[in-house]
């Protein structure tokens, strides 16, 4: 199908975009890479009166280190993140998840901010920023707030952003020394939305005992799901197969996924446990290797 009519704005600066967003509020949609919004328009599932195209705002396209975190501008293309040596070095979890987002043609246009603000529960980036306890920076005319990832994803395709707020930056904190991470997922074909995905982050002390663990899952709830109980049983333990197995059981037990055409709830729970176990093992392998 073809998109419904709309008024098109292509502001050359963030300030002008924010002014337009305030002016049109609920009747406006911000257009980032368009890889989720344009299909919704083509199907007429979304009918915004105003489209505010952010693609002419170069100041939102950057990857840089900032105060111990990797800061990524909202309009940074996913492909640029995938190719960035700085991302590989400072945020291996993001680097590992990036090639799993859609296909390379999608990542050539798709943006980091677009994927996060769209908040699809099967998407990879929301789980990455959640597992790392990252944050999202929102701007409105004359104001800015930093929203922790756990509070940003509110419900299915719904974020904490107000109608006059724009997501401008994602912040991925650098894990402490002796940390490792892994992102694993199961999808029917490469590039499809994952049935289940798991982002794992671990930190060990000098004696090889787990001092921190985080598991964030995709595809098993309306938002990224933090498996807090599983993480809790790991801390203070050594990273053994038995410990991972116990944590994986906690992951499966704690989930209430929906069933759909592609997978039953039971299957999703099972896959989540298996992926959690493998992701933890892989994350521990990365300690001292890929991680800093």
């Amino acid at each position: 199908m073809k998109p419904p009519p709309f008024e098109y704005h292509a502001p050359p600066s963030l300030e002008e975009a924010l002014t337009l967003l305030r002016e049109h509020g609920d009747e406006a949609k911000a257009l980032a890479g368009g890889q989720s919004l344009v299909p919704l328009l083509n199907f007429r599932l979304a009918r915004p009166r105003h489209l505010i195209d952010l693609n002419r705002i170069p100041s939102l396209d950057y990857i840089r280190e900032d105060d111990g975190a990797l800061a990524v501008g909202a309009m940074t293309r996913q492909r640029a993140v995938e190719r960035s040596p700085l991302v590989r070095e400072r945020c291996p979890l993001l680097a590992e998840a990036m090639p799993l987002v859609g296909h390379f043609q999608i990542r050539n246009r798709g943006t980091v901010g677009g994927s996060l603000a769209h908040a699809d529960p099967a998407a990879e980036l929301p789980a990455v920023v959640t597992a790392l306890r990252g944050a999202l920076v929102a701007r409105r005319p004359g104001g800015q707030r930093v929203i922790p990832a756990e509070r940003f994803f509110v419900a299915y395709l719904t974020t904490a952003l107000e109608p006059d707020e724009l997501l401008v930056e994602a912040r991925f904190p650098a894990p402490p020394p002796r940390s490792g991470s892994a992102f694993l997922e199961v999808s029917r074909r490469h590039g499809d939305f994952a049935l289940v995905g798991v982002a794992a982050v671990v930190t060990l002390d000098e004696g090889g005992v787990l001092t921190h663990a985080a598991l964030a899952l995709t595809g098993v709830g309306p938002t990224p799901v933090l498996a807090e109980e599983a993480a809790r049983v790991l801390v203070g333990d050594r990273p053994t197969p038995q410990a991972f197995e116990a944590a994986a059981r906690k992951v499966s037990e704690g989930l209430r996924p929906d069933a759909d055409l592609h997978a039953s709830a039971e299957y999703r729970r099972h896959v989540a446990g298996v992926l959690a176990r493998r992701a933890l093992a892989r994350a521990v392998e990365q300690v001292g290797g890929g991680a800093r």
Binding site: Y8, A10, G34, N42, F104, N108
Partner: peptide, 21 residues
Amino acid sequence: GACTIVMDGEAVRSCLLFAVQ
């Protein structure tokens, strides 16, 4: 993927872009 073209050196879906862009 049938509509894939090359825009400024990169493969993109031309059905997910507006001509004005």
